[in-house]
Amino acid sequence: MSYAFPDALVSTNWVKENLKSPAVRIVEVDVDTKQYGAGHVPGAVAFNWNTQLQDQINRDIISKDDFEKLLSSAGIKPTDTIVLYGDNNNWFAAYGFWLFKYYGHADVRLMNGGRSKWLAEDDKPLTADVVAFAKSDYKITAINADLRAKVPQVLEAIATRNSNLIDVRSTDEFTGKIIAPPGMTETAQRAGHVPGAKSVPWAQTVNQDGTFKSVDDLRALYKTAGLIEGKPTIAYCRIGERSSHTWFVLKYLLGVQDCKNYDGSWTEYGNLIGAPIERS
């Protein structure tokens, strides 16, 4: 059995074969952008998750205008095939994937195994050279707002039980033993999880080398966790990037039609006055 949308996931070999294809644009999104500077996939541009994909004043995703400017400055066109990859099992690359889809880019793909797999394969070239692409005039024509969950949708899901809620954080964060992993600057006032959420830590969706597990394994994983097929689903974590990874798994590998990423995640929900919290 194959993934629901197999084209959304490309192998490192596919990327190597398409390095010279002008319609394929490669974008690296890392936790720490120094990684890109040390070496990257030839022709890749880097987007900084913190400073380029987030609004710098309001806590929000980058605005439509700023996203258009960012893609125009990188010379990306709406017809391009975008391949995203990054470090830490593609967490931030998956967030980039979600954002491209949110802003309606048609052809977006994730490189299976991310940066570490590319690095580990001897036949995959790496360069420190940065290509200067001619600017484009990128225009967003449609926004897929249904890919994003905000607080009202989460509260509605709690009240009506009309959606699966998936918490992809560590078990200790889910049970409320800790608010956030040690040393994290973004945190919350309260520990625990959204009432009714199922705990499926993101790491359970990948193999040792960071590639995604088979469709059968993924299906079994969420079935065991109590995910009800056919129901709308909302994924969340702490700051919205690991949940993007799970959102990708659910929507593009398993084909969950109505699947949202709650990017506000626990750093929003765990700070809300009056929001119900479960601990267990």
């Binding site: 040390a38 990257h40 830490n88 790496l126 992993p181």
Partner: peptide, 29 residues
Amino acid sequence: VDVLTDAMCPSPGMGEGALGMARSYAKAQ
């Protein structure tokens, strides 16, 4: 000295950061 941060999100035990970046230098340069 390159100081690698995982401050935005921790990845305990993944062993990627510093090792991966050193490998990147050796492979790309």
